[in-house]
Simulated assay, not measured.
Amino acid sequence: MNALATAFEPARSRNAFASKFYHQTSVQTGLEAASPHQLVVMLFDGLVDAIAQARGAIAADNVELKCRAIGRALRIVDEGLKGALDMKAGGDLAADLSALYSFVIQRLTDANLHSDEAALEECKRVITPIREAWLAIAPQAKAA
């Protein structure tokens, strides 16, 4: 690294830190202001984003990024979406969603093990209608 680049390295580090801090603060503020319905939308959006990042990482042959993105997707599905299901109150719908989320978790795991873009696309195809249905009930969620 040349002297000029070295001189600017601390500034780049500060800028990266400030940018990351701003993003984290923005996300935290969004989470605090979000309704339970909006939080689920944010989980779906994060899942779709993580799947897209994983697909890009596979295409770029970036194993580290692929693993991070799929790991994030797995946590969103398992801890966020599946973990939020109320199996008693939700009845058959909650049971069906739990089974669907288990399927997505398996396919994400397969995608990670085999760098399988088709498995990632399958996860997106399965999740998209649920996300769209969730968005469609937004007016009812606000009224409740």
Score class of each variant (00 low, 15 high):
residue 5 A to P: 02
residue 66 K to Y: 02
residue 54 A to Q: 00
residue 65 L to D: 10
residue 17 F to N: 14
residue 19 S to H: 15
residue 63 V to F: 10
residue 37 H to T: 01
residue 23 H to M: 14
residue 25 T to W: 11
residue 50 A to T: 01
residue 69 A to F: 03
residue 4 L to W: 07
residue 14 R to A: 12
residue 43 L to P: 06
residue 37 H to D: 02
residue 44 F to W: 03
residue 44 F to Q: 03
residue 51 I to G: 01
residue 41 V to T: 07
residue 49 D to F: 05
residue 65 L to S: 14
residue 44 F to K: 02
residue 42 M to F: 09
residue 58 I to A: 00
residue 67 C to T: 15
residue 44 F to H: 08
residue 35 S to P: 02
residue 26 S to D: 09
residue 21 F to Q: 07
residue 12 R to G: 06
residue 55 R to H: 10
residue 25 T to D: 12
residue 67 C to H: 15
residue 11 A to W: 11
residue 49 D to N: 09
residue 35 S to V: 01
residue 26 S to A: 08
residue 25 T to K: 14
residue 57 A to V: 06
residue 29 T to G: 05
residue 55 R to K: 11
residue 56 G to L: 04
residue 6 T to C: 11
residue 28 Q to D: 06
residue 53 Q to W: 00
residue 61 D to Q: 11
residue 33 A to F: 07
residue 20 K to M: 08
residue 17 F to E: 13
residue 63 V to K: 15
residue 49 D to G: 10
residue 26 S to Y: 03
residue 4 L to E: 06
residue 34 A to K: 08
residue 2 N to F: 03
residue 7 A to F: 11
residue 65 L to G: 05
residue 29 T to R: 13
residue 27 V to T: 10
residue 39 L to C: 01
residue 28 Q to W: 05
residue 32 E to D: 13
residue 24 Q to N: 12
residue 65 L to E: 07
residue 38 Q to E: 15
residue 6 T to Q: 12
residue 9 E to A: 15
residue 47 L to I: 01
residue 64 E to R: 14
residue 35 S to K: 09
residue 35 S to N: 05
residue 21 F to S: 13
residue 65 L to C: 12
residue 5 A to F: 03
residue 2 N to P: 04
residue 4 L to R: 15
residue 47 L to M: 03
residue 54 A to H: 04
residue 45 D to W: 04
residue 56 G to H: 05
residue 59 A to N: 14
residue 23 H to E: 12
residue 24 Q to D: 07
residue 15 N to C: 08
residue 10 P to T: 04
residue 31 L to Q: 15
residue 55 R to T: 10
residue 16 A to H: 11
residue 52 A to V: 06
residue 67 C to N: 14
residue 33 A to V: 12
residue 10 P to G: 03
residue 31 L to V: 05
residue 64 E to D: 13
